[in-house]
Design a protein around this nucleic acid. Structure first.
Length: 391
DNA sequence: GCACCCGCGTTGTCAATTTC
DNA sequence: GAAATTGACAACGCGGGTGC
C-alpha cells in the first residue's frame, strides 16, 4: 500500500475539522475576536476591594464580640461538591459542603493567618493596579507561608471565598506553555505578540489581558509534550497541515495555557484537537483541558473547552497499530479506576469505552508513543500518520 | 474523665513536563 | 539531579463530638 504522508495528514485533519461542523476558512481570511472590555476593570476592582474589606470587617466584628473568627469556604477537594454539565462546576454556596478555617483551632490557625495575610496583599495589589506571581508572593514571606503548596491552596481558597478567578485579584502563575502558528495576541497595553516564531513563543502569564486575537488558523492542535511540539514545528507541520495553531502545556497544563486555549476556541470558533498518550495520565491531561479540574472547579467556565476532540492515541489504537506495550502497574490501575468513577467519564460513553479497553487489555504503551512517533523513522512516522488517519 | 470514632488539615508521594 | 509548574491521592495526626 502506497502512503502519501502529507496528503493523509492534511486530508484527515481537514475531515476532523469538517466533522466537528466548523467552517473551514481560507488561508488568507483572518479571524478576529474581541475578548474583554477593559472599561469594566475599574468597577470590578472596586467591587473586589470592597469584598475583601467586608471579610476583614467580619473578622474584626468577631473579635470585638469576643468570638473566635472563622472563615467558611466551599470545599475544593471534594468531588461531591462539583456538578457536571459541559464541564466541572463548583456547586454554589448553600449547596456545596464547606470547611471552616478557625483561628481558635490549633490545626487551622496557620492557614487562617495566611489567608488574612494574603487578603491584605491582594488588596494592595488591587489598589495599586499591579500584579504578582504566586512564586513572588511565596518569596516575599517564606517564613509565614511555609511552603508553596500552602500558598497555592490559600490562593484557591480566597478565589472560592470571593468567587473570582485569581487573575482578577492580580495573582498570576508563571506560565510554561508554548504556542506557535498564525495568530497574534493583542494585549490591553497595545503590545502585539506574534506567535509565528520558530520554536513557538511562551504563553504570556497575563492571558487575561489579551483583548483581541487575529488568526488565519483553521484549527488548534494541543499536544501533551514539548518534544512533540518542537518536532512538529521542525517538520514544518504548520504549513503541511494547513494554517493551524499548535499549543503545548508541557504535561499538565498550567492556568495560562488553559485560559488561552479557551480564548482561542471562543474567539476564533475553530475546532480544538488534542494529542495525548494512551495512558492514564494522558487521558487525565486531556480531561483537564476538556472538563477542567477539581481544585479549579470554581473557575472552570474560564478554563474548560468541552468541544475538544480527542485525536489520539486511543487505547484501541494500541493493538491496531502494533504499538509496543507494557503491563499496567498497580498505580496505573488505581488511577484508571478513579478516573472511571468521575462524572465526566460516566457521562461520556466513548471515554468510558476507551478506559475499559485499557483496563481489559491490561497494557499501556511502552514509553511515550507520541514522542516516539515523532522521531519520524519510517515506521514511527507511519504510526503517527495512522493516528491522524484514524480521526 | 476516658475511650472511641469521624472529619479535616497537612504532609508526602507520585505523575506529566522543562530548564539550569 | 534539583527545582519549578500542574494534577491527584493516601496516610497520618489532631481536634471535636459522642457515649459510657
Amino acid at each position: 500500500m502506497t502512503f502519501c504522508v502529507d496528503e493523509v495528514l492534511i486530508i484527515k485533519v481537514q475531515d476532523a475539522v469538517k466533522e466537528i461542523g466548523a467552517e473551514l476558512r481560507l488561508a488568507n481570511n483572518f479571524t478576529c475576536g474581541t475578548l474583554r472590555r477593559t472599561n469594566d476593570n475599574d468597577e470590578k476592582r472596586s467591587q473586589l476591594m470592597a469584598a475583601i474589606e467586608d471579610v476583614m470587617l467580619g473578622i474584626v466584628r468577631s473579635v470585638a464580640e469576643g468570638k473566635p473568627p472563622v472563615l467558611t469556604l466551599r470545599n475544593l477537594r471534594d468531588w461531591r461538591n462539583v456538578t457536571f454539565g459541559d464541564w466541572l462546576e463548583l456547586k454554589p454556596e448553600g449547596q456545596a459542603s464547606t470547611v471552616e478555617v478557625k483561628f481558635s483551632s490549633r490545626r487551622s490557625r496557620a492557614k487562617f493567618s495566611l489567608i488574612v495575610h494574603l487578603l491584605g496583599v491582594i488588596h494592595r495589589l488591587l489598589f495599586s493596579r499591579s500584579t504578582c506571581t504566586r512564586r513572588e508572593l511565596y518569596y516575599q514571606n517564606v517564613g509565614l507561608i511555609g511552603s508553596q503548596r500552602l500558598l497555592d491552596s490559600a490562593v484557591r481558597d480566597i478565589c472560592s471565598l470571593l468567587n473570582v478567578p485569581a487573575w482578577d485579584l492580580g495573582v498570576t502563575t508563571t506560565s510554561k506553555g508554548l504556542i506557535a502558528g498564525p495568530v497574534s495576541l493583542i494585549m490591553e497595553s497595545g503590545d502585539v505578540i506574534d506567535c509565528m516564531t520558530p520554536g513557538g513563543v511562551l504563553i504570556p502569564q497575563d492571558v487575561h489581558r489579551v483583548v483581541r486575537l487575529e488568526s488565519s488558523a483553521r484549527f488548534v492542535l494541543l499536544v501533551e509534550k514539548d518534544a512533540t511540539f518542537q518536532k512538529l514545528l521542525d517538520e514544518g507541520m504548520l504549513d503541511r497541515l494547513g494554517p493551524c495553531v499548535l499549543v503545548t502545556g508541557k504535561g499538565f497544563p498550567d492556568v495560562a495555557t488553559r485560559l488561552l486555549v479557551r480564548l482561542l476556541w471562543k474567539s476564533l470558533g475553530v475546532p480544538v484537537l488534542v494529542l495525548v498518550d494512551a495512558d492514564p495520565h494522558g487521558i487525565e491531561i486531556m480531561c483537564v483541558y476538556r472538563f477542567g479540574s477539581l481544585s479549579m472547579s470554581h473557575q472552570a467556565d474560564d478554563l474548560a473547552v468541552p468541544a475538544i476532540r480527542w485525536l489520539g492515541v486511543h487505547p484501541t489504537d494500541i493493538a491496531r497499530l502494533g504499538i509496543k506495550t507494557q503491563p499496567l502497574t498497580v498505580a496505573d490501575r488505581n488511577k484508571l479506576c478513579k478516573l472511571m468513577a468521575r462524572q465526566y467519564i460516566i457521562r461520556h460513553r466513548a471515554l468510558q469505552d476507551q478506559q475499559s479497553k485499557l483496563i481489559n487489555q491490561d497494557q499501556v504503551p511502552a514509553g511515550s508513543v507520541i514522542r516516539n512517533a515523532c522521531e519520524f523513522s519510517s515506521s514511527s512516522y507511519f504510526t503517527f500518520t495512522m493516528l491522524l488517519s484514524h480521526i
